[in-house]
């Protein structure tokens, strides 16, 4: 479970996140929408413990992030917009390296299986990452999330720049993880993916949650229209 209680972050005189209350339960996919500068990435950074909150708290699976950032990070998986990997390592070596950093140890077969589950074939897994496309690097990021077995997944623009097929595969994977009771927070500009995958969608404007829609509401309404209305309000 992932929770924000009155979470606030200021940068000098600008309030980036303003008393955010948010709760993502196990099995939920929460789509966090908002224009550039709305505070989406700042919220993700607060959950990652890369920033200290000025008010309120971020909690990952019962661990207060500000009090124990390293402990909280061990309970989550994170896939950024650009999955940055070591180009001199192969895909499987990168997976092994990053898993080990989180204290996880896997046999070579397990690593290949994880990459295959994420959609990266064995032949590609043995190639140096320097030769990978963005979609392939994203798949290594997904395999890494699978390898951690985390119950919380933070995604920051995960489908940005992916082709439709890769984006579709990614959605399928998210849904599988949700079925495995993973709580997923996805900051995105991709209204289509948010509507397709999210069980709840929140619109963040000026660091505040301006609106929130359930799956049922999303099925009945046009998300793009709702989003634009909120922006103009």
């Amino acid at each position: 479970m992932l929770e924000a209680k009155q979470l606030t972050k200021r940068f000098q005189d600008r309030v980036a996140v303003n008393g955010l209350d948010l709760r993502v339960a196990p099995g939920e996919i929460y789509g966090l929408l908002g224009p550039n500068g709305a505070g989406k990435t700042t919220t993700i950074n607060l959950f990652l413990g890369f920033l200290s909150p000025d008010g309120g708290c971020a909690v990952i699976d019962g661990v207060d992030v500000a009090a124990d950032p390293v402990g909280a990070r061990r309970k989550l998986a994170y896939i950024p917009e650009q999955v940055a990997l070591y180009p001199r390592f192969t895909g499987v070596e990168n997976l092994e390296y990053f898993s080990a950093l989180g204290g996880r140890s896997h046999t070579p077969n397990e690593l290949y299986e994880l990459l295959e589950r994420a959609g990266l074939p064995r032949a590609a897994a043995d190639r140096r990452v320097g030769t990978y496309s963005k979609g392939m690097r994203q798949k290594v990021g997904v395999a890494l999330a699978l390898a951690t077995g985390a119950k919380v997944l933070l995604l920051d623009e995960p489908t940005s720049g992916l082709d439709p097929a890769a984006s579709h595969d990614f959605s399928q994977l998210l849904r599988r993880l949700a079925k495995e009771q993973v709580a997923i927070l996805m900051a995105t500009h991709d209204l289509f993916r948010a509507r397709e995958d999210a069980t709840r969608v929140g619109i963040l404007i000026g660091g505040k949650l301006a609106a929130e829609y359930s799956r049922r509401e999303l099925e009945k309404a046009d998300l793009e229209k709702l989003y634009l209305e909120r922006l103009r309000a």
């Binding site: 990652l48 890369f50 402990g71 061990r74 309970k75 994170y78 950024p80 650009q82 940055a84 204290g103």
Partner: peptide
């Protein structure tokens, strides 16, 4: 510069140890 720092730190490793 490359962004791997965020990936590394998100793994829950103590920065000083790494």
């Amino acid at each position: 510069e490359s962004g791997t720092l965020r990936m590394v730190l998100a793994r829950g490793v103590a920065p000083w140890k790494w």
